[in-house]
Design a protein around this nucleic acid. Structure first.
Length: 431
DNA sequence: TCTGGGGTCCTAGGACCC
DNA sequence: TCTGGGGTCCTAGGACCC
């Protein structure tokens, strides 16, 4: 494979992003161990009782506090820990602003998450100088203009740049010069490699492999028998820095999902239907806003004790209707309990829609009209209802109306008030 | 007094097709 | 006549990432 030379790939990663934003919004939190809390059961800004740590400041990390950790455990590790609720709108706004800064140096930006991105600056050096200089400029501008600490890794490939940015943290920069990759990687723990989590680390450690250097010295055949074909092959390549460097500027999602932790609840039809209706609403609304629909619906059910199962179904007809998605999800969830008769309680429900196709509601309605001589009245009504709800929410706000439980239960069709909305609403609404 | 919410990718078995 | 080889799709579970 032909490969550009030179360390022109940057991985830019905001440090402890959520926590840094909180310290920016409230400077009295600067220098203190803080945790951004996630509430259990959907309250969204819990203070740690029952919730988990979404992000920890470096001061909190020094005590061993990590994201994903239950709040009570974080507090026991760090009694002086301050829990703050998340300002999620601010995270999105500031994350976007950081990406805008990146975009001023190159159009070759691949955003990986809210707070990190890969950049290829090969075409920018004649304007802005060497990659290492660009990296320093990124850090300076994000700090000066947005008040946030940023770490940057510079290398010949994406993966290596990412490792370098991890090594650079907090608030640093690491450049891996071409030709020095292997000596840079060799002493690092394998856990720094992307894709090596707890399980893989344990498996490797059991074979005496702790560092990337030791990994590189392990034969591909051994790695593959240890970790499976794909992971083994990937890690073997990584350890010797044989890795892609292509930047994907327009990544599109392959699935859309939502989930809700419920504490511990009796798994009654009522609980399942109400929760799945809420989740289906969120997922289907996002699908329609993106002009997409999905052929595969997956439901995840978690039982007490963290054991979870999934059930999925694939249909030739893509779904984007809230009520159809609710129905499919409900049947799948029930199937999960039928297959696990000993389980009577549920702690989490999730819906994910995949196998996505471009397919807006208007198109779906036309298809129904064209393809079905006596079009299924329920389907048409559901499309109309979704349209009405989407339109009303865009005017009056998301909380203005929803799919009430009574609607979910109304098997005969759509309540009058929604029909009226549909008739007078969006001119594209089907009739 | 034990676990959020959003995703991606891989594996393995089975069905089905040529 | 009793079982080759390759490919695709679907389902369920699992590891991993931020």
């Amino acid at each position: 494979m032909p490969r550009a030379t030179g360390a022109t790939i940057l991985h830019a990663d905001l440090d402890a992003f959520y926590a840094s934003v909180e310290q920016l919004l409230d400077p009295t939190l600067l220098g203190k161990p803080i945790a951004v809390g996630g509430g259990a059961g959907g309250s969204g800004n819990g203070s740690g009782n029952g919730g988990v740590v979404l992000a920890a400041s470096y001061e909190a990390k020094a005590f061993g506090v990590r994201s994903g950790m239950p709040g009570w455990r974080a507090r026991s590790l760090c009694p002086s820990l301050t829990f703050v609720g998340g300002h999620f709108r601010e995270y999105q706004r500031l994350g976007d602003a950081v990406m805008d800064v990146f975009g001023q140096f190159t159009p070759e930006v691949e955003r990986v998450s809210i707070d990190e991105a890969f950049l290829d600056v090969a075409g920018s050096v004649h304007l802005f100088g060497e990659p290492a200089h660009i990296a320093a400029e990124l850090r300076r501008r994000v700090r000066d203009e947005l008040g946030l600490p940023l770490s940057v890794g510079v290398a010949t490939t994406k993966h290596l740049a990412k490792v370098a940015s991890q090594v650079a943290k907090p608030d640093g920069i690491v450049v891996v010069a071409p030709g020095t990759e292997r000596e840079f990687l060799a002493p690092l723990p394998v856990g720094l490699l992307w894709g090596v989590g707890r399980k893989t680390q344990e498996r490797l450690a059991a074979s005496g492999v702790h560092t990337v250097g030791e990994l590189a010295a392990t034969s591909p055949a051994v790695l593959q028998s240890l970790l499976g074909e794909a992971v083994g092959e990937k890690l073997g390549a990584l350890a010797v820095n044989d890795d892609p460097r292509h930047i994907e500027t327009d990544r599109h999602a392959r699935s859309v999902g939502a989930q809700s932790a419920l504490g511990q609840r009796a798994a009654t039809d009522d609980v399942l239907r109400t929760t799945l209706g809420f989740l289906a609403d969120r997922v289907a609304t996002r699908l329609r806003a993106a002009g997409q629909a999905g052929r595969t619906v997956t439901v995840r059910v978690r039982f007490p004790g963290m054991r979870a199962v999934t059930r999925s179904s694939t249909s030739p007809d893509p779904v984007a209707s809230t009520l159809t998605l609710t129905d499919v999800a409900f049947d799948l969830a029930r199937a999960a309990f039928v297959d696990n008769p000993a389980e009577r309680e549920v702690t989490l429900l999730a819906i994910s829609v995949s196998n996505l196709v471009d397919h807006d509601a208007h198109q779906l309605a036309l298809d129904l009209d064209a393809e079905e001589q006596h079009a299924d009245a329920t389907s048409v009504n559901r499309v109309a209802l979704d349209h009405a709800v989407d339109a009303a929410r865009s005017r009056f706000g998301r909380a203005s109306l929803g799919y009430a439980t009574t609607v979910l239960r109304a098997e005969g069709g759509v309540p009058d008030e929604f029909r009226e909305l549909a008739e007078r609403g969006d001119p594209r609404s089907p009739d």
